[in-house]
């Protein structure tokens, strides 16, 4: 069992959770993920690390309450336990001094962008972070990003309730057009990563995206997470999750993410009804 040692609500539906897992914390690197199972009947879901401490033996991740598993997760408190946590999985984000780097974090993707931006800054890059969300309420980790040594932090919301009223692609395009970028990293909803990649491609700015396909085991065994990279099938879990954004078949990925939409809705509805029965 893996005890919950930290919990923070970042918005109405977004939570950060910390779990005691010394062996994993010892190894975790930016861009890697864990697989967790909440309880005995639980499904295995992948979540990318948002933070970790090898010294104190904990790892953290951020999730949005969208389905049954994340609902159950959101009900756990400090002192409760997760049935299973496995990791660190996936290839770590390639961190080196590339020069001028933009890190785009959209929605909950900001959670993954945070350690990536931190590592890229520490490696000597001049890092601009573009943080995007639908509205101010859903904007997360702004203070944490501010505390990093960045060149600039640009906040965008769809409705203008915080920062610029823009999509993240607008400031990204400006940076590209100004010739002020050597590399871009985009982490967030697939549709956002798709448009970020399309934006940078126009200016031939190499771009890394962090994909989040459906997984079962997370160790290469099932192939549920297969993605097409330049026409070649790769596994998100062992070959990724980072890939060249200009080579990803985003349409296929979006389609594959919808396989279980109906099932997920059903499971969540049944779970909500059960919850109401018990309260």
């Amino acid at each position: 069992m893996f005890p919950v040692v930290y919990k923070r609500q970042l918005s109405e539906s977004v939570f950060e959770m910390g779990v005691e897992a010394p062996a994993i914390a010892h190894k975790a690197k930016a861009g890697q993920f864990l697989m967790l199972r909440v309880d005995e009947n639980g499904e295995r879901i992948p979540l990318t690390f948002s933070d970790w401490s090898a010294e104190e033996g904990w790892i953290r991740f951020i999730f949005m309450r969208v389905g049954k598993t994340t609902h159950k997760l959101s009900h756990l408190e400090v002192g409760d336990s997760l049935a299973d946590v496995v990791g660190p999985l996936g290839v770590p984000t390639h961190v080196e001094d590339l020069g001028r780097v933009a890190v785009v974090g959209g929605g909950v993707g900001a959670a993954v962008a945070y350690p990536v931006a931190r590592a890229m800054a520490a490696a000597g890059n001049e890092v601009t972070v573009i943080l995007g969300a639908r509205n101010e309420e859903l904007l997360i980790l702004e203070d944490e990003f501010k505390a990093l040594s960045l060149k600039e932090l640009i906040v965008c919301t769809d409705d203008g309730s915080a920062g610029r009223k823009d999509l993240v692609t607008a400031p990204l395009k400006e940076l590209c057009a100004a010739g002020a970028l050597d590399h871009a990293m985009a982490i967030g909803p697939v549709i956002m990563m798709k448009f970020c990649s399309a934006t940078t491609k126009e200016y031939s700015v190499p771009t890394t995206v962090s994909l989040n396909p459906i997984m079962v085991d997370g160790t290469g065994m099932c192939g549920a997470c297969r993605v097409s990279i330049d026409g070649e099938t790769k596994f998100g879990c062992v070959d990724g999750p980072d890939f060249d954004g200009h080579a990803v078949d985003f349409e296929e990925l979006m389609s594959r993410q919808r396989v279980y939409v109906d099932d997920e809705r059903l499971a969540d509805a049944e779970y909500s009804r059960e919850c109401r029965c018990h309260t």
């Binding site: 009947n41 499904e43 598993t69 099932d263 997920e264 499971a267």
Partner: peptide
């Protein structure tokens, strides 16, 4: 056993 077990199968 879905949805009693949380993992769906098509």
């Amino acid at each position: 056993e879905f949805p009693k077990a949380d993992t769906p199968v098509w």
